[in-house]
Computed example of a mutant assay.
Amino acid sequence: MLMIKRCPSKSDDKLRNKCENSGEMKTQLLNKPVTSLKSGLTYRNIHCPECFNDSLVNAIIWTIRMECDEKANFNLLSSYSAIIELAEKKQCDLFYHTKSIANYIRSCHINPKNNVDVISTCNVSGTWKTFDRDIEFACQMYDNIFLLFKNVYCYICNPLPENIDMI
């Protein structure tokens, strides 16, 4: 899944800083990724959709999972400081996940040949600035529906009008 991690350059500096800087673990715990059901896009945190005037009404905020080298019980902890301290002590890794958006992403089992709405070629949007032969080849080669596209490569070679950096 691609995640929008930057605001357009014309965005307010303060807002852009909140979106783009993941910072310390406390910031990561507080600012979890979010998926907008309006646009279908996933953003690094709750501040990034503001850069694109995307609504967070009915948005899905991702949850956090920690995997630790040693057993750790976070259930009894009541502050972010205590959670972070235990996570560092037990050598934990932080992961974001969600099961909730599966109903909002089109299935890989759809056959694009039977679905006229699927975008299956590059630069239909007219906004692809740098041609990449490998991406165009990948767009043509396989069927694995991603949003309204034949596959993720067709999505990449049909960028949104705004200059958006994604991971």
Results as ranks from 00 to 15, higher is better:
S22C: 03
Q91E: 15
C154H: 07
S78I: 06
S9N: 12
N31Q: 14
W62A: 02
I105N: 07
G40K: 05
F146K: 08
S81P: 02
C157R: 03
I83N: 01
S11I: 12
S120R: 06
D117R: 12
L15I: 12
N58F: 03
Y96T: 09
N163Y: 13
R16I: 02
D13M: 05
E67I: 12
F149E: 04
A102Q: 01
R16D: 01
N103D: 07
S100P: 00
N144P: 06
R133S: 15
M25K: 04
N151M: 12
C154K: 09
K32C: 08
I156N: 09
V152K: 15
N163R: 13
I46M: 00
P33H: 12
Y43Q: 02
F137L: 00
N31M: 07
T127P: 05
T130F: 12
I167E: 09
M3N: 07
Q140M: 13
G23Y: 06
A102Y: 06
E20G: 03
L29H: 05
C108P: 01
F95R: 05
K5C: 02
K89H: 11
Y153I: 04
D165R: 13
M3K: 13
C157G: 04
R16N: 06
N58L: 03
S81G: 03
Y142W: 06
P33I: 03
N151Q: 04
D143I: 03
K129G: 10
R65V: 11
E88M: 02
E50T: 13
V57M: 09
T98M: 01
N144V: 02
K10W: 11
V116C: 06
A59N: 06
S55K: 04
T130P: 01
Y96H: 11
F52W: 09
N114Q: 07
L148I: 10
C154E: 06
C7D: 02
L30A: 07
Y80G: 14
H97F: 15
L86H: 02
L76V: 10
N75T: 15
F95Y: 15
N144G: 01
P8K: 07
L160C: 05
L56V: 11
L147K: 10
T42N: 05
H109P: 01
L56E: 05
S79H: 11
R44I: 00
L2Y: 08
L56I: 04
Q91F: 11
K113M: 12
M1R: 00
S9A: 08
V124Q: 10
M166D: 04
S36P: 03
I101S: 05
K18W: 09
S39R: 12
R65M: 06
P112C: 00
L37W: 04
I84S: 10
C7P: 10
L30F: 05
K129E: 15
